[in-house]
Nucleic acid binder design. Structure first.
Lengths: 131, 131
DNA sequence: GCAATTGATGTAATAACATTACATTCATAT
DNA sequence: ATATGAATGTAATGTTATTACATCAATTGC
């Protein structure tokens, strides 16, 4: 998935997220896109749904916000599990992938015949710069 | 923390969660407590805040809902990291603790001088019974 | 005893996040 | 050219959470 084949709305939303310092809520994205013609939350949510599907954007469940993927040129879904640190002071988000954790969770699920869908791993705290 | 020293509202909310089959939203808790005199969301949220603090209740970030801790007699905070599987079909939630994952996340955070606050691990999918 | 403080409660209003419903437009594949 | 599926526009509504302010209850220090 390259950012070339995005629709206008998807492109605008991805652009806003890519150029943002930190995660943004759907409504702050909407505000930033008023001048580009956005008028309703659904325009943002629809674009976000697609971007999430493409693996270009991640949703941070614990703060109801969205970030651009750290490596949008590759397919993030292919990296397996994605985890995040979220600085509660400056908002900085760091994305990482850990195969040990992934295997461990997979094992846990398999042992219980639990069919894994989406997995969320988010560490909230204070980043090095803000400590 | 035993459930003895809870206030009336905290006790009522904990009771509803303890006797529930699955996770409940704050507003469904409110509905279940109308007859006990609850009239506003804040009564629920305030009780939940305390119960979370006491480790008697967990918040499921990915579904905006709350569950009673699986072992309220012990202090859940003492077990370290808590992770969950959440069945999207029947709502069943299973709580578990994994030291390998915990150590791995701790290591990641330490390497980056990230001071860890609350960590969320939630696996959404389909449980054995619903597969 | 009785202020002073602290924690819990009651209530209303509002803010923040997300979806449903329905009409329309666009792309493209026959 | 037209049928189809995807994307869009807009309004209304639903769901989750917080702010603000008044009151009440328990505890502490004097």
């Amino acid at each position: 998935m390259t950012t070339q084949q995005l629709t206008r709305n998807q492109g605008l939303v991805f652009d806003v997220l890519s150029h943002s310092d930190g995660p943004l809520s759907a409504y702050s994205i909407l505000d930033k896109l008023r001048d580009s013609g956005f008028r309703a939350p659904l325009q943002v949510y629809r674009a976000l749904d697609k971007l999430l599907e493409f693996g270009l954007v991640h949703r941070l469940e614990s703060i109801n916000a969205f970030v651009a993927c750290a490596h949008p040129e590759e397919d993030c879904h292919a990296h397996g599990l994605t985890a995040f640190t979220i600085c509660e002071t400056c908002g900085k988000v760091t994305e990482f992938h850990d195969h040990v954790i992934e295997d461990r969770l997979k094992g846990f699920a398999r042992d219980r015949n639990f069919k894994t869908g989406k997995t969320t791993i988010e560490i909230r705290g204070t980043c090095a710069g803000c400590a």
